[in-house]
Design a protein around this nucleic acid. Structure first.
Length: 226
DNA sequence: GACCAGGCACATC
DNA sequence: GATGTGCATGGT
């Protein structure tokens, strides 16, 4: 394994030792994972859970039920997740893509090669790279590493990436450095989010961070854009 | 009241 | 092709 790969594994182990196994994704069914992946775009997970709760209560946790629901009605239900008009549209786009070929069978929709599935997901308006990779890794349980704002910020602060490295470059870094193991990639991304939430906010101090023993520059990574 | 949160598409230059 | 902007609620 490369030097960077060793460092990433050590960081993963340090986070895991401190924070415990994360057992992601916090969604019950493949469909809920997909919906959550769209709803959590630039949004706090707590707000997403409220929106998912509303959908559950309304009996809309199936592709056909969502397909039959008017966009405006959907928007009202997911209001707590923010950006509710654009997200209602995005959910409808995703649901239409599944429904057209597979009806209610989300598992069948997800059951194809990673490149094909990723291409299919990225063709859906409102599904970008992070959302697609989250769906592949956490709903389809297939190897596609997820990069997010926390990943970027943590790696930048620890000098493992450059400020202008883009999504695909960071994804490639993990995928080439770590053994291809769905469970490892699953928990590794989850650990990055857990560390990010607790210790690596834009303006947060690093005190008590499980990664504080690794060389880092706290001033780096204060800008989230990548 | 400011700042932040597990992005993405689109307009404009 | 790079850069800027709109989308919006809820917690700290």
């Amino acid at each position: 394994m490369s030097q960077t790969g060793e460092t990433l594994m050590e960081m993963y182990r340090a986070a895991h030792a401190r924070l415990g196994h994360q057992a992601w994704w916090p969604g019950e069914t493949p469909l809920e994972v997909c919906l959550g992946a769209i709803l959590t775009q630039n949004t706090n997970w707590r707000n997403v859970e409220k929106a998912l709760g509303n959908l559950r209560t309304a009996g809309l946790m199936s592709v056909s039920a969502l397909h039959a629901t008017p966009q405006g009605e959907l928007a009202e239900l997911i209001r707590p997740a923010g950006y509710y008009n654009v997200k209602a549209k995005r959910l409808k786009n995703f649901i239409a893509a599944v429904h057209e070929d597979f009806g209610d069978d989300v598992t069948a929709f997800l059951d194809r090669s990673v490149p094909t599935l990723r291409e299919t997901l990225l063709a859906i308006n409102g599904v970008g790279r992070e959302t697609a990779d989250s769906i592949i890794l956490y709903a389809a349980h297939k190897p596609s590493f997820v990069v997010d704002a926390y990943t970027y910020r943590i790696l930048l602060r620890h000098g493992l990436i450059y400020e202008d490295d883009d999504y695909e470059a960071i994804k490639e870094l993990f995928e080439s450095c770590l053994p291809e193991d769905v469970d490892l990639w699953n928990d590794c991304h989850a650990q990055l989010v857990a560390v990010g939430k607790q210790y690596c906010r834009p303006t947060a101090r690093c005190d008590g961070c499980p990664l504080e023993g690794f060389p880092h520059d706290p001033a780096a990574g204060r800008r989230d854009e990548y």
